[in-house]
Amino acid sequence: MKVLAFGKIAEIVGNQEIEIDNLPNTEVLLGYLRQQYPQLQNMKFTLAVNKKQVSGNTEIPRGAEVALLPPFSGG
């Protein structure tokens, strides 16, 4: 699966795109990410699975694109 990072999170992760083994749901993914990048632990962000914003634990389809979205600041 593909993980996309944006804004401040892209700076923390050091990459805009990372490829990882498929994980079953967003809770497992968040656990993995917080372990890999401890700075994410005190950051506010939401997730989008295949370009749709999700809330709560959500199933991740195989090969999905999951995006880490810090608070928006367009306009």
Binding site: F6, G7, L69, P70, F72, S73, G74, G75
Partner: peptide, 14 residues
Amino acid sequence: LVERIKKDLPIWGK
């Protein structure tokens, strides 16, 4: 439109 653009579009300003 302006309110929703600022609130809902995944855009970031540094």
